[in-house]
């Protein structure tokens, strides 16, 4: 139990009157990759976005239940969303680098936090870009616009940007669905390299991707968590009939 870094208990989420999450109980151990899978509209992205309070941006959302990050209640009135999002970073489906240079993109969080030491910033840029496995491709044009990069490179710069703030948890919302297969596999490699140092939670539509990279897989359907287990078990020997039907492509 002591290894658990993030816990959700009886989490309900409503868009107006519509119940989108119907009581999710799901815990995450520190380090490793967990994949959230399920058909479209099953609530997996919605669930992911409750974990760093990105759903706060949508009007009319009501959330009940508890989410705890290291015993800190994320939805307590005193919770500081800015601090939370520094520790629980997020990468989106559509690569969204800022329209600045690659260098500026990576250090943006730090610079705004007040870090001015040039050497330290340089070191962070290199380390983050290396971790995101994009350093070799961009090291010679760090001061050119990030928008000039390919989609896959942009996405890895976005990952580097999150790493630079040194979060403990990284949430990824279908990080490869807007990318071509080559770029996707580079992102997968990146994530596999990061799994020893970070707790990674990724939503994916791509079952092969889940089976390739995830240590654990959680299957969502109709706003409920159907099953969560070691990835191998989910794919080879699921406990629930629904999971088996989905995995074997009988629906979804």
């Amino acid at each position: 139990m002591s290894k658990e870094i993030l816990t959700t208990q009886d989490l309900h989420l409503y868009y107006g009157d519509k119940e989108a999450l119907k009581g999710i109980n799901l815990n995450f151990d520190a380090k490793g990759i967990t994949a959230l899978i399920g058909p479209s509209g099953c609530g997996k992205s919605t669930y992911l976005r409750t974990l760093n309070r990105m759903n706060d941006l949508i009007p009319n959302v009501t959330i009940t239940g508890t989410i705890k990050f290291k015993d800190q209640d994320l939805y307590a009135p005193s919770a500081d969303t800015v601090q939370i999002r520094k520790e629980i970073g997020m990468v989106f489906q559509q690569p969204n680098p800022f329209p600045f240079s690659i260098y500026d993109n990576v250090i943006y969080g730090l610079r705004i936090a007040g870090e001015k030491d040039k050497e330290k910033l340089d070191a962070v840029v290199e380390k983050s870009l290396r971790q995101a496995a994009v350093w070799d491709e961009v090291k010679d044009h760090l001061h050119e616009s990030a928008l000039a990069l390919s989609g896959g490179q942009q996405q890895r710069v976005c990952i580097a940007r999150v790493l630079a703030v040194s979060p403990e948890i990284i949430l990824l919302d279908e990080p490869t669905s807007a990318l071509d297969p080559v770029s996707s596999s580079q992102i997968e490699t990146t994530l596999l390299n990061l799994r020893h140092d970070y707790t990674i939670i990724t939503v994916t539509h791509n079952l092969q991707q889940a089976s390739r990279i995830a240590d654990r897989t959680a299957f969502f359907m109709n706003g409920e968590l159907v099953e969560v287990d070691q990835t191998k078990n989910i794919f080879m020997n699921p406990a629930e009939k629904q999971t088996e039907d989905y995995i074997s492509g009988r629906f979804g």
């Binding site: 760093n52 800015v82 601090q83 990468v91 969204n96 705004i112 976005c158 703030v165």
Partner: peptide, 17 residues
């Protein structure tokens, strides 16, 4: 784009930042 706003917030910037 809204994704820019999400990107900023997800980095732990405040709304104003």
């Amino acid at each position: 784009d809204t994704t820019q706003r999400e990107g900023g917030l997800a980095l732990g910037l405040s709304r104003w930042e």
